[in-house]
């Protein structure tokens, strides 16, 4: 199948696929960040049960294979009377996995700040809230631009799990499987989706690098 024939027959599928991938990535990433902040707050809190729960959360979701988690959410949860839409299943899976890594990024961002700077802020008479707002959070955010850029790409790649459940419309990976089970799309059928991912990743990391260069903290 040539390119024009492929696009003529399945062009709409690819376009929908790209938009679905982008859409799920964007929605997931917003929640990934929110949940990562929450889990990180738990992990640095002085309350031992919250610390333990936060640490356990991260260990579970950074070590579980994405497919295993998706299958549990999509196929095991209904047996426990928790039924989610297919699309929601994929997004929830992505959020759980992504937020564990996001929290790890925040933790290492926090750890690049020297304890001395926190003591200096304390000595100036800044309150706990002021120290967080003026010293800890700005530095943690600025040092995590690159890791979070990579995480955004990882979140996009994780949404390919959507090919393992019947989505409508399908995302980019699902489209390849769809096209190739109907016609012999050949390498082109694969390349269109692959380029959709690779070019998006390229743009994300280009923007991320630009932002990082602007906000990077000299040490």
């Amino acid at each position: 199948m040539g390119l024009s024939e492929l696009l003529g027959t399945y062009g709409q599928n690819y376009l929908d696929g790209l938009l679905t991938t982008w859409g799920m990535t964007a929605v997931s990433f917003v929640f990934v960040m929110a949940l990562a902040v929450l889990v990180t707050v738990m992990r640095v809190s002085p309350l031992a049960p919250l610390r333990a729960a936060g640490d356990l959360y991260v260990q579970v979701f950074r070590n579980i294979p994405g497919v295993a988690l998706l299958i549990i959410i999509a196929y095991a949860l209904p047996s426990l009377r928790v039924v989610l839409e297919w699309r929601t299943c994929v997004i929830v899976t992505t959020i759980l996995l992504g937020s564990a890594f996001g929290s790890e990024n925040f933790m290492s961002g926090i750890n690049t700040i020297s304890v001395g700077q926190i003591e200096a802020a304390r000595s100036l008479g800044l309150t706990f809230g002021q120290i967080l707002r003026r010293v800890v959070i700005p530095q943690a955010l600025r040092t995590t631009v690159l890791p979070m850029t990579n995480l955004l790409i990882a979140v996009m790649l994780t949404t390919a799990l959507g090919s393992q459940v019947p989505l409508d419309p399908q995302e980019l990976t699902g489209v390849v499987s769809y096209v190739n089970t109907r016609s012999t799309g050949g390498i082109l059928a694969f390349l269109i989706s692959a380029l959709g991912y690779a070019l998006t990743a390229f743009v994300i990391s280009f923007v991320g690098n630009r932002v990082d260069r602007r906000v990077r903290i000299l040490r």
Partner: peptide, 9 residues
């Protein structure tokens, strides 16, 4: 930049 699932397909 591409998902491993896509490579598997």
């Amino acid at each position: 930049g591409v998902p491993s699932l896509l490579l598997i397909y």
